[in-house]
């Protein structure tokens, strides 16, 4: 199986996202989109990230309205009776859509091929991430599912007591946050004590330096090609 290193994919995703912001012309963005988005979207659909892709499509409506309100200038393209769509609106909408498609593609490639725990391990061992930050991040990711379950229970209790199930006002949010934090911190106390008792302070992380396999080289080469494409066309 073509298994890639989490660190390589993390670096790839982050740099492609930065490139998407550096790229200003439609041509530059189109190259990045064609390389990243089809792969990312296919992988995303396979791994059940349909909701994220659907949210992206819904967001396009807002982007188009935004472009119509604030960038509708230049040559007239379409004249509907109630609105005239000009070149500026289409260019602006196209550029932002392509940029978001690149970001979405890179994120889906990363997230579908990576295990979060392996990523943390890789960041610590290869990139020299502080063991403290790696530990906090590992706890955070471990607690995520538990907190989501807690949040579900809080919603249930709120509904039973006649409060709004989902917080709408800041006051609602405060009353939702308090039990969520309280439950999380209660667990954190025991996790923290256990870690301390197991000698967390004395633990020294294993550093192996950056390892690059042939598969990683392929990914880095694709990244360099995109880098060149963006800067040559600049």
């Amino acid at each position: 199986m073509f298994k890639l290193r989490p660190l390589t994919l993390f670096i790839y995703g982050l740099i492609v996202t930065i490139l998407a912001f550096i790229a200003r012309s439609t041509e530059q963005l189109l190259i990045l989109t064609l390389i990243n988005s089809p792969v990312g979207i296919v992988l995303g659909l396979r791994k059940r990230f349909t909701a994220l892709i659907a949210l992206f499509l819904v967001g396009l409506i807002g982007l188009f309205i935004n472009a119509l309100i604030f960038s509708n200038s230049g040559a007239l393209l379409v004249d509907l009776s109630f609105i005239a769509i000009k070149e500026g609106a289409i260019t602006s909408f196209l550029n932002v859509t392509l940029r978001l498609l690149v970001i979405l593609g890179a994120a889906l490639i990363f997230i579908t091929q990576t295990n979060a725990r392996e990523l943390i391990k890789s960041l610590e061992e290869e990139l020299g991430l502080s063991k403290d930050i790696a530990y906090a991040l590992a706890v955070g990711l471990r607690m995520l599912n538990i907190l989501e379950r807690d949040a579900g229970e809080i919603r249930l209790v709120r509904a039973e007591r006649g409060f709004r199930k989902y917080p709408v006002t800041p006051a609602d949010f405060g009353s939702f946050l308090r039990p969520l934090l309280s439950l999380g911190l209660e667990r954190a106390v025991w996790i923290g004590i256990a870690a301390e008792l197991r000698g967390f302070a004395q633990r020294s992380p294993r550093r192996v330096g950056l390892r690059v396999s042939l598969k990683d080289l392929v990914i880095y080469s694709i990244l360099i090609l995109q880098f060149i494409a963006v800067f040559v066309m600049h």
Binding site: Y135, M143, L185, F200
Partner: peptide, 9 residues
């Protein structure tokens, strides 16, 4: 370690 666990939460 407790601070870092709080940070994680």
């Amino acid at each position: 370690a407790l601070d870092l666990t709080y940070l994680g939460v």
